[in-house]
Amino acid sequence: MENQNLENIIRYVNGEMQANEKEVFEQELATNINLKEDLLLYLNVDKTLRSEFSNNKTDRAFKENLVSLNQQYFKAEQKPTAKIIKINRLWYAAAILIVGLLIWAPWNHDIYDKYADTEMVSFAERGAVNQDNLQAATDAFNAKDFNKAKGLLQPLVKENPDDDMLKFYLGLTQFQTKEYEKAKSNFTTVNKRASIFKYDAAFYMALTYLKQDNKAEAKVWLNKIPKDSDEHQKAKDILDNL
């Protein structure tokens, strides 16, 4: 989003334009696709931020951080008209620009990292599975010590090759430690079976492809997740951003 566009959009949305300025802006809005997209982006982020800040007791600190970050996105040399933006809205202009870049930007697949955070839930009785090692693996996984969890899960999977729960979580540790091909192998195996982890595996397979910047394959796996699955809404959210 260009600084000039952002300035004019803020003034337009807040009713600060003179009648002739507003008329010129709306005429350009009717023909300038980029300006229209910037306006829609601003309105979307504006709605999100207002909702968040209305219930956020720490928004003052957040605003102060954004004022600092603002210096990275707004040059010191600005045209006189830029002074129309009031100082108490400077943080907000930065928020619009930063959130637009870091959250709505379609090229930034790091947005999907938030979906990778999950906990390992093991069952109390797993037959031949060594309970002490299983509990240790669970504790390590939930403490985000994925290398340790992986080391504990590998022999468990070797001893219990048909245990989809173990194989799924081993795949997650491999995903977290960037062993993507090994992770995909385990996710594929689990997904092919009639397992309660079938669609969890499909979802994390998609995330693995996103980490490898392969959006086409990610879409294939996200579309395998049915509407009645617990993973469907997350899959839909990601698809909507691809």
Rank of each mutant, 00 (worst) to 15 (best):
D164Q: 07
L170K: 01
K219F: 06
A140Q: 04
K144C: 11
K36D: 08
M205T: 13
R50K: 10
T58Q: 08
A149K: 11
A235C: 14
F123I: 08
Q18H: 09
E28T: 07
A93R: 02
P226T: 06
L242Q: 02
A149G: 07
A105K: 10
N160D: 05
K79S: 03
K79F: 11
Y115I: 00
N142G: 11
V45M: 06
F62E: 12
A143C: 07
I238W: 13
D117C: 00
I103H: 06
K182C: 02
K79P: 03
V99T: 05
N70R: 11
A183Q: 08
A202W: 08
Y112R: 00
I9N: 07
D110I: 12
Y92I: 03
A216M: 08
E179N: 15
K79Y: 10
E125Q: 10
V45N: 08
A128Q: 12
G151Y: 00
A94G: 10
E28Y: 14
G15V: 10
A95L: 02
A30N: 10
S68F: 14
I10D: 00
V190R: 02
L66K: 05
D59M: 15
V121E: 08
Q4T: 14
F203W: 02
L156G: 13
R126W: 00
A206F: 09
Y199V: 04
N214I: 01
Y199L: 03
T118N: 10
Y115S: 04
L43D: 04
F53G: 01
Q233H: 05
V121T: 15
T58I: 12
V67A: 13
A218K: 02
K47H: 05
T208V: 14
Q72P: 05
D110N: 13
P106M: 10
T118D: 14
R11I: 04
I87E: 12
A183P: 09
N34R: 11
G100F: 12
M17S: 05
K158I: 06
D240G: 02
Y12C: 01
I196R: 15
A124F: 00
N3L: 15
I103E: 03
L69H: 05
N32M: 05
L49I: 15
Y92M: 02
K236W: 06
A149E: 02
I84G: 07
L242A: 08
E231Q: 15
Q131C: 03
N241R: 04
T173P: 04
Y42M: 06
P155W: 14
D228C: 04
F62G: 11
N34F: 12
A61Q: 15
Y199K: 03
G100I: 05
K211G: 05
V24K: 09
E37R: 15
E2R: 00
P161K: 03
K83N: 09
